[in-house]
Amino acid sequence: MTHRIEPAARPYEKDMEATLEKLMPPGVEPLVLFRTLARNPRVFRRFMAGGLLDKGSITLREREIAIDRACARCGGEYEWGVHIALFADKAGFGAGEIAATVVPGADAACWTSRERLIVRLVDQLHETNTVDDELWAALKEEFEDEQLIELVVLTGLYHMVSFTVNALRLPLEDYAARFPAG
């Protein structure tokens, strides 16, 4: 399967070059996702303005559980693989956590009870587009309102990212992780 829209190529417009350069570590080519969205500078800038990879109200580990699970549920291997490659170690993920982001259910032994609630939240949003009262009550016992807002918005944002990478058929980054077999 080949990508449907050719990514922007150098030379980029001057301001786009500077923007793309800031997004990646030195010497690392900007993601195919970023270069493809850069074909529409307005959409690219709005997309980047909506990012939630800064220090938020939840931990890095909690953020990555929500992001990786949302991407996995949507079949967004491109974005899942980038996040595993760039953030799994920082989030303290071992092989068990990485696999648990992809397998059905929230009962993997690697998750704490709080982390299981995140997985259940992402799964329920994915399956029903809402959260039932029972799960919401459990979430409210564990998370502050600000954290719940962040988790719900992260889930929606990474559904959108997954829809984008899947619909555009972006090729997987060479260094990114792949979904576990089976």
Rank of each mutant, 00 (worst) to 15 (best):
D15W: 10
M16E: 07
M16K: 00
M16S: 09
M16R: 02
M16L: 05
E17Q: 11
E17G: 10
E17T: 15
E17P: 05
E17N: 09
A18R: 04
A18Y: 00
T19L: 14
T19E: 12
T19H: 11
T19G: 02
T19K: 11
T19M: 14
L20C: 08
L20I: 08
L20K: 07
L20N: 03
E21S: 15
E21A: 15
E21R: 15
K22I: 13
K22M: 15
K22Y: 04
L23E: 06
L23N: 12
L23M: 09
M24W: 06
M24F: 03
M24H: 13
P25R: 12
P25K: 14
P25M: 06
P25W: 02
P26K: 13
P26V: 11
G27L: 03
G27H: 05
G27P: 08
G27E: 07
G27W: 07
V28L: 12
V28K: 14
V28H: 11
V28A: 11
V28N: 09
E29V: 10
E29H: 12
E29T: 15
E29W: 02
P30D: 10
P30V: 04
P30Y: 04
P30G: 00
P30M: 08
L31E: 04
V32I: 15
V32F: 05
V32C: 05
L33F: 04
L33A: 15
L33E: 09
F34M: 09
F34P: 09
F34I: 10
F34D: 10
F34H: 13
F34W: 14
R35K: 15
T36M: 01
T36Y: 03
T36K: 02
T36E: 00
L37K: 13
L37I: 06
L37F: 08
L37Y: 09
A38E: 04
A38D: 06
A38P: 11
A38T: 09
R39M: 04
R39L: 03
R39V: 02
R39G: 01
R39C: 05
N40H: 14
N40D: 10
P41V: 07
P41H: 07
P41I: 07
V43D: 07
V43K: 05
V43T: 14
V43H: 13
V43W: 12
F44K: 04
F44Q: 01
F44G: 11
R45G: 07
R45E: 08
R45Q: 10
R45I: 01
R46M: 11
R46T: 06
F47P: 00
F47W: 13
F47T: 00
M48G: 00
A49C: 11
A49W: 13
A49M: 14
G50P: 01
G50A: 03
G50D: 10
G50F: 01
G50R: 05
G51K: 02
G51A: 14
G51Y: 03
L52S: 06
L52K: 00
L52W: 01
L53W: 06
L53M: 15
L53D: 13
L53S: 00
L53T: 06
D54C: 01
K55Y: 06
K55L: 01
K55A: 10
G56P: 01
G56T: 01
G56D: 00
G56L: 00
G56F: 01
G56E: 03
